[in-house]
């Protein structure tokens, strides 16, 4: 199973608004895929379909060997394998950073406290936050919170990580520190799908760029896609974005 994610003509509507109108693309193991496109192009919805936060209404979507389009898919099992990081961090405000990171391992995987904390500290070291383990989210900067959120997902030892515009709420300096963490994950061989507005970052870190437009995959290719857009839509998007 080398294809971790396979979209095949996936359709999704919210009421009368059709957001995904036949989306198809695949992500291989160890690949980093960047979903780019305007607001409303469906990229965040596509990402949320991957871990079942949105249900697919048509077409087929395979994630880690599971059929997300079928009824009765085991979301609980899926989420042990697929981590997600949100734009607004969504850390648990009543817990310290270390408690945030160890909650999943302890309650879902049944790890003992000290074992989970060892793992948690290891993950915090990965994102450069080991000295902040005892802090509460509100005591940290946005960039630190976002790195803590990444550590929380990593602690579940996922096979696939999803990033939903994780730097959109951060200023350029803090954006840099979060992107460096994602780069190091890519270097470790983590399979990742990221929705991003950071074109330079997408160009440098992504193996595959998926340009979405009006609910379909308009163009897809490697990092050089942004240098040689085939369609006027991507040309215009890149022109505005850079």
């Amino acid at each position: 199973m080398n294809q971790i994610v396979r979209f095949d003509k996936v359709v999704k509507s919210f009421g009368a608004a059709q957001v995904l109108r036949g989306v198809s693309f695949t992500v291989e193991r160890g690949q980093v895929a960047a979903l780019i496109g305007r607001s409303g192009s469906g990229k965040t919805t596509a990402l949320r379909c991957i871990n079942g936060l949105e249900t697919v209404q048509g077409g087929e979507l395979h994630v880690c060997g599971r059929e997300m389009h079928a009824s009765g898919v085991d979301l609980h099992a899926l989420r042990k394998e697929v981590g997600i990081v949100f734009q607004s961090y969504n850390l648990f405000p009543h817990m310290t950073v270390l408690q945030n990171v160890t909650l999943g391992p302890r309650k879902v995987k049944g790890m003992a406290r000290d074992q989970a904390e060892t793992l948690g500290m290891q993950m915090l070291r990965k994102v450069g936050l080991e000295e902040r383990a005892g802090y509460y989210p509100e005591q940290m900067s946005g960039g630190q919170q976002q790195r803590a959120a990444i550590a929380r997902s990593l602690a579940m030892e996922p096979k696939l990580m999803l990033f939903d515009e994780v730097t959109s709420a951060l200023d350029p300096e803090l954006t840099g520190e979060v992107l460096r963490v994602i780069e190091s994950l890519a270097a470790d061989g983590m399979t990742m799908v990221l929705v991003t507005h950071e074109m330079e970052f997408a160009r440098s870190v992504a193996d595959q760029i998926v340009f979405m437009h009006q609910g379909v995959v308009w163009e897809t290719g490697g990092g050089d896609l942004l240098d040689q857009p085939a369609t006027p839509e991507l040309r215009q998007f890149v022109g505005n974005g850079l």
Binding site: R79, I84, N90, F92, P93, L103, K107, V108, S153, M156
Partner: peptide, 26 residues
């Protein structure tokens, strides 16, 4: 916030665990 339910769901907590560990304390 609804996003707290989502975050809890996405680290694979079961519904009762989401309520007990994440929602009710807040």
């Amino acid at each position: 916030p609804r996003t707290q339910w989502e975050a809890a769901e996405c680290i694979a907590l079961k519904p009762l665990q989401r309520v007990l560990y994440v929602i009710l304390p807040q």
